[in-house]
Nucleic acid binder design. Sequence first.
DNA 1: CAAAATATTTTACGCGCGTAAAATTTACTG
DNA 2: CAGTAAATTTTACGCGCGTAAAATATTTTG
Lengths: 343, 343
Amino acid sequence: MPEKKIRNMEEFAAVSGLSRPTVSKYFNDPDSVRATTRKRIEAALERHEYRPNIYAVNQNRRLTKNIGIVVPYLADPFFAEIARSIEMLVIEAGFRPILLGSHGDRGQEIDNLESLRSIKPAGVLLAPLGRISDRSAIESFCKAVPTVLFDSNMEGTGAAFIGSDNVSFVDQTVDYLCRTGTPPCFFEMKTPANPNANKRRLAYIAAMERAGLDPQVIKIDGEGWRFEEIGHKGTHDVIASGGFPSDTVLCSNDRLAIGLLAACYEHGLRVGRGDGCAMRVASHDDHPYSRFTCPSLTTAAHDYAEVSGRSVDTLFELIESGGRFDQRRETLFAARLILRDSA
Amino acid sequence: MPEKKIRNMEEFAAVSGLSRPTVSKYFNDPDSVRATTRKRIEAALERHEYRPNIYAVNQNRRLTKNIGIVVPYLADPFFAEIARSIEMLVIEAGFRPILLGSHGDRGQEIDNLESLRSIKPAGVLLAPLGRISDRSAIESFCKAVPTVLFDSNMEGTGAAFIGSDNVSFVDQTVDYLCRTGTPPCFFEMKTPANPNANKRRLAYIAAMERAGLDPQVIKIDGEGWRFEEIGHKGTHDVIASGGFPSDTVLCSNDRLAIGLLAACYEHGLRVGRGDGCAMRVASHDDHPYSRFTCPSLTTAAHDYAEVSGRSVDTLFELIESGGRFDQRRETLFAARLILRDSA
DNA sequence: CAAAATATTTTACGCGCGTAAAATTTACTG
DNA sequence: CAGTAAATTTTACGCGCGTAAAATATTTTG
């Protein structure tokens, strides 16, 4: 059936025997037209491949159906996966996700927000870089666009924050490690990229003190988002200067732990909880690769599903409330301890 | 200076004392207006924050400035990095990259192309899933949109293909391994997701036969893109059923090798080239994590920069030629051997 | 310096669609 | 079945901008 090509909504309305605005209504919400009308449109749709011009649509709509998703580092499988999960929820809700990665770079983060602003999104889900973020730029963005922060909090910025409860992460790992062996020292970057790291350190200190133990924090050098490399080099440095103060090391996050484990391996330090092991290592995040480290990594897992689900729900609620909440919301989800071979 | 808000190009043209079309010309190409005119516009731009409405612009332009980038799996740091590199080149060229990941899913890949088609991109850089791709859908897309394939070839599809020379990868690893120890067996998935895997197997067999050696291919079970898990389980299975036919294993790709190394570690098999090592392992791709495996992984590296650079250049050339080349082009770049500790 | 050639700007029109208000149809009442 | 309320469709207008053709300014030529 060599039906002639449909060029615009006008022509499509003609072949379905309706007026263009009726068809327009249908595309905005198929249930907003009478059932018989809907059938006619859908019948025509099967014969006449037509899709509304996305630019013309968005030019006139008060609010686009675009949802921006910004994560600090797309090459980190952790963020890639959570972004993926959010994307799917956004699509299910009938919106169009636009995924952008900031590549650990302050300027890129601002560029991303700038770029999002120009496409007039209905809302944005933003996992900020953290410490190095241009705070005032992000704040001004959040004032202009309904924004929900996730993963990494910036106090007072955005209409809501959804994340994991760092205290819950650390309490569980510290408790487990203390119960089953030497109390851990804490391994982290000197200048962490992300506020979660600070919360984790504080939670570690608090947990240790609560147990009447002496907290020991090891801070290693390094800038940026190449955490494995930083953890690797930092571990070499620590070992070179006398070793860890405890045979049990709790890493701030899994990517540091991956570097640490590689360095331990190179030094012939056997990691694990069995006989003949020189040390135990645990961490936080349940990074996708933490199952495949040597040994596999004992860690505290985020509740991916809850964080992404609640983030999306909150954003849609925000959008429906006209872009404002009476009060900023913060939601934290507890961690789940994953026991593997490293501790 | 509380300048009144500029709402559209008309108003902006007014405050700069020009007609709107002149301003329009400027935004399409700043050099297309007289120098004095340009100065006036840029002066006004500093006082009056204004940016053309992206939807209105793209509605009327013959060709948008959008460039689609599709990779098979964004949660794989290898693709995340190459995508990043391509993104930057696209931005430098004054275009707008739209990055999409197919999540190892045939349907998602088609959705991505569908979604790209609706934004009428000037061109698309596509790294197809490979075997499981919906070939006819991709072909029909390539006919409608100027498309350059990269990483994974599909014979005859797209105007060009840019990738790495699998023969060069395998020749180098096989040669090195044979020179320095026992000739390798080849470790791969039974039904590889990606045509590169087939090329690598054939290259391995050819290289071994050329050297008068007996090729040994080990094919493990597993579907999908969770290569580490597949390599891990596959290795356990191989070990349980008597072990590898050679003490030297060449993996089809680094992600399989990561799983293999984890499994070897669990079995207490020491990997490396030193004394007391039970086996050697090498691989292909130089995955970002291959520096941090235990032991660090000897592998053949892609020339990221060349592949991404040439892909982008080729696409722009394609766009300038009106979306067609007289003849389909294929460009392959050689690998670089990276010696680490595993072999 | 006038006229022709060229570069630049303006006029005029249309792109494809959203949406308020008006007109019409359908559903519901008694 | 007439009459009214509610749901639906149509009329009419405008969004913000690209672009060909016409008008004007600038540069070059003789």
